[in-house]
Computed example of a mutant assay.
Amino acid sequence: MALKDDFLFIFSCMLAISLSSSILGRPATFLEDFGITWSDSHIKQIDGGRAIQLILDQNSGCGFASKRKYLFGHISMKIKLISGDSAGTVTAFYMNSDTNTIRDELDFEFLGNRTGQPYTVQTNIYTHGKGDREQRVNLWFDPAADFHTYTIMWNHHHIVFYVDEVPIRVYKNNEAINILYPKLQPMGVYSTLWEADDWATRGGLEKIDWSKAPFLAYYKDFDIEGCAVPGPTSCASNPRNWWEGTAYHALNAKEARRYRWVRLNHMIYDYCTDKSRYPVPPRECLAGI
């Protein structure tokens, strides 16, 4: 009987460890959760792998991705963007299902600018292969002077993009009125640094100045807390996951005030109000975002 009890105790401990590792992950170093996907010579580890430097020059940009995919959760990184003249560059932090025509994707894209002009953050959301949901916000601080935290919260109720705990984008789950919402496909976590001067700065009017190269961006404090796939299939539907708690079903009063402040003072483009593209606003815009 004692042997049986010992076995059950050990099995329970192993199961608990397995479940927790599938749900929560705050890696101490970059390589614990990520791998380089593009141009490893342009990504350098710093501080024993607890931070990294991304490099863009005329030879190449670079990128990295999480080793696993996740279905719902809270993903954040601290990023220090390219300093000085960054026009024509894009630093991206995003989630992607990597499923081609039916992909789901949640994008942060940081669009560089000429020295002294504000950095623009573009967000976009793809659901079942349909994107074209761009919004752009000018940051209210210099994101190249220090690290700032950029977060994607994704649960069954909404998707929220945060900058230093300030919500800049909300996409609600409106499946009840037949509006698509990403909830079936796990997504990996990605980042890239690349040249896109055909569109990134003032619609491509401002070109990259290669005399300012190399362009450098820095990342640290990689934090992924979500349901890892492969992993327990019950994880994604578990209402006890902290990001599914009642407090995260909608913005709280403080977040709602901050969100209104961003939209009133710093939003420079919203696809919902672009009548040249959408004479009739998309249904999710009418449903409230």
Score class of each variant (00 low, 15 high):
residue 222 F to K: 09
residue 4 K to F: 14
residue 197 D to S: 13
residue 271 Y to E: 10
residue 210 W to T: 05
residue 131 G to I: 04
residue 55 I to H: 02
residue 167 P to L: 13
residue 211 S to L: 05
residue 60 S to R: 13
residue 169 R to G: 06
residue 156 H to Y: 02
residue 135 Q to H: 08
residue 203 G to C: 04
residue 64 F to R: 08
residue 8 L to D: 14
residue 259 Y to P: 06
residue 4 K to C: 14
residue 24 L to M: 10
residue 22 S to Q: 14
residue 229 V to E: 09
residue 197 D to W: 03
residue 33 D to W: 10
residue 243 W to H: 07
residue 129 G to K: 14
residue 123 T to Y: 11
residue 275 K to H: 12
residue 166 V to Q: 13
residue 222 F to C: 05
residue 138 N to M: 03
residue 95 M to Y: 03
residue 36 I to H: 04
residue 217 A to P: 10
residue 249 H to G: 07
residue 70 Y to C: 04
residue 2 A to N: 12
residue 66 S to D: 07
residue 6 D to M: 14
residue 227 C to E: 11
residue 194 W to V: 05
residue 68 R to P: 03
residue 43 I to T: 02
residue 85 D to C: 07
residue 25 G to E: 11
residue 74 H to V: 12
residue 210 W to G: 04
residue 127 T to K: 08
residue 228 A to F: 09
residue 206 E to W: 03
residue 137 V to H: 12
residue 140 W to Y: 01
residue 196 A to N: 15
residue 93 F to Q: 08
residue 60 S to F: 05
residue 66 S to L: 08
residue 196 A to C: 05
residue 247 A to R: 14
residue 1 M to P: 08
residue 187 M to H: 08
residue 87 A to Q: 15
residue 245 G to E: 13
residue 167 P to I: 05
residue 229 V to M: 11
residue 202 R to I: 01
residue 74 H to N: 13
residue 79 I to D: 11
residue 5 D to Y: 08
residue 192 T to Y: 14
residue 229 V to C: 12
residue 272 C to D: 05
residue 3 L to N: 15
residue 253 A to V: 13
residue 289 I to V: 11
residue 203 G to I: 00
residue 216 L to P: 04
residue 193 L to C: 01
